[in-house]
Amino acid sequence: MSRSQATILTNMCLIEDGRGNIVMQIRNPKRYSWSGAALPGGHIEVHEGLVESVIREVKEETGLTIKNPSLVGMKHWYTKEDERYLVFLYRTNEFTGEIHSTEEGEIKWVARKDFAQMDLAYDMLNLLRVFEEEELSELFYRERLEDDFVREFW
C-alpha cells in the first residue's frame, strides 16, 4: 500500500496588535471562489520552508513583515479530487511596516469583538477557536454533508 498522497500545502497567520485588533483580509470575490473576511496566508511554494512561506505570504498580502510566527495548529480536509489540503496555522504579535490592500483584497485591522457582525469567510469562527483555545491544535473536516462539513477538533 502506497503511503504517498497528493497534498496541497498552505498557511494562514493571525496577526495581533496587542490592543485586541487582528489583521483581516476582505477577499476579492472576483478573484476567489470563496469570499468574506479571512486571515492572510497562501500557498507554500516548492522548496520553501513553512515559516519562510508564511512570512512571505503575509508580506505580499498585507505589507507587514512578521517575526517569530508560532505554529499553533492546522486545518485540513480532502478535496473533491481526493487531495489532502493542509493549512498550517501561525500566530504572531511581532511585525514591522504598515498594512496595505492588494488585488487579493482589502486589508484592515479589525477588533476581535466585531467579528460576529462581519461577513466572515466560511467557518472562520470555528477556525479562530484553534488560534485561541490552547487545548485545540487541529480542525479536520472529515466529510462533506450537503453544504456543510463534519468538523472535528483535536
Rank of each mutant, 00 (worst) to 15 (best):
T96E: 15
A121Q: 09
K108E: 13
Q25W: 04
K113L: 08
A111W: 01
G73D: 00
S53P: 06
S53V: 01
F88S: 02
H76N: 14
A6S: 14
E135W: 05
S137V: 06
S2P: 11
T65M: 11
Y32M: 09
R3C: 10
E104D: 13
V58G: 00
F140E: 14
K108H: 02
Y32C: 09
E61A: 07
T7E: 12
M118V: 02
E104V: 07
L125R: 03
S53C: 08
V58C: 01
I8R: 12
E57G: 06
L136I: 12
E143A: 06
Y122L: 03
A37G: 08
E146I: 00
F149W: 15
D114V: 00
I99D: 10
G49A: 10
N11Y: 03
T96C: 01
A38T: 02
E45D: 15
L120T: 02
E48T: 00
L86P: 10
K75N: 15
L71D: 01
R151Q: 14
T7G: 05
R3Q: 12
V46E: 13
D17A: 09
L64Y: 02
P40W: 04
D147F: 03
F153P: 00
T92C: 13
N21A: 08
F88V: 01
N93C: 08
D123M: 04
H100N: 13
P29R: 10
F115C: 01
K75H: 15
E81M: 10
G63F: 04
E104A: 15
F153A: 02
D17H: 07
K59V: 10
Y78C: 06
L89R: 02
E138Q: 11
K67L: 11
I99K: 04
R56K: 13
L139N: 00
V54A: 05
K113M: 05
I66D: 05
S137P: 01
V46H: 09
N28L: 09
R142P: 00
W77F: 13
D123P: 03
E106C: 02
D119H: 09
T62S: 04
A116R: 15
S2C: 09
D17F: 05
G105A: 02
Q25G: 01
E135Y: 09
F153V: 00
S35T: 14
E143W: 14
R129G: 09
Q25H: 09
